[in-house]
């Protein structure tokens, strides 16, 4: 049913640390790898001149120029934010799109999807991509087939992107619980939502880059240039200096 649940007891989602992310794309490949099982995520012309494919997660790189000081590079993973007020769900005419009442995960039932693409239009975040081979909409499932999967070792029961992140920039948890790791992280670091004015009430939070250290007036290389030789080299330095 494409009406949204009034509230969900759990709000599962991701906290993505823009300070720690190095833009290595490991989350992109981990996501594609895990979700490529079964029906999978198709690619078109993957090794040809004009490759294209279905991805549930994309990592952008931005240059941010503060008013003072040097510009910063911010790597920015973008995927479904599992919005509380998900516009992609309510527009769906077939009932394929839904938000789970128990944990708030937004999913697509491929057996009901007619591939009209209206949900992708309704999403401000570009979280949904139509699979060109299968003709149905694909989106982040928050690895619903991992997080509750008792056949996996406990440490693997988190989304593939979180498990695969080498720098620990991605955190998975329940935002409805103020004591959860992600809630605390978000509160501590000033986690923010994307385009909140559009009224989608995203669950995922982004943790802003930390403030840079104070920059010294002199070159950071200065201590390295002022070398004091010791031992034989020091004796030679002193002797030659006196001649």
């Amino acid at each position: 049913m494409t009406t949204l649940p009034a509230t969900t007891p759990k709000k599962l989602g991701l906290a993505i640390d823009l300070d720690t992310c190095v833009g290595c794309q490991a989350c992109v490949t981990a996501c594609k790898g895990w979700n490529d099982q079964g029906a999978g995520l198709s690619d078109q012309d993957p090794y040809g001149a004009d490759p294209s494919g279905t991805f549930l997660n994309r990592v952008h790189s931005y240059s941010v120029q503060p008013i003072e000081g040097a510009s910063q590079i911010v790597n920015f993973p973008r995927s479904c934010l599992h919005c509380d007020d998900a516009p992609c769900v309510t527009v769906c005419p077939t009932g394929a799109s839904y938000k789970r009442a128990e944990d708030g995960i937004v999913l697509v039932n491929a057996d009901d999807c007619m591939g009209c693409g209206l949900c992708a239009w309704a999403c401000p975040y570009g979280a949904r991509e139509l699979d060109a081979d299968q003709g149905v909409m694909k989106k982040c499932t928050l690895c619903v087939d991992r997080i509750y999967n008792e056949n996996l070792p406990e440490e693997d029961r988190e989304p593939a992107c979180v498990r695969g992140c080498p720098t620990g920039a991605r955190h998975f948890g329940d935002f409805a619980d103020p004591e959860s790791k992600v809630s605390k992280l978000s509160a501590e670091r000033g986690g923010f939502a994307l385009m909140p004015d559009l009224g989608t009430r995203p669950v995922n939070r982004y943790l802003p880059p930390r403030k840079k250290d104070m920059r010294l007036e002199a070159s950071v290389l200065a201590p390295l240039l002022d070398i004091k030789a010791t031992g034989f080299a020091g004796w030679l330095d002193r002797v030659l200096g006196k001649i």
Partner: peptide, 23 residues
């Protein structure tokens, strides 16, 4: 506002997320 980075400064694209087209 899309990236939430306006608090730091002016945002421009450093590198696109993918080198070819997508949906």
């Amino acid at each position: 506002t899309a990236t939430g980075l306006s608090a730091i400064g002016e945002v421009t694209v450093f590198e696109q997320a993918h080198t070819s087209g997508n949906y």
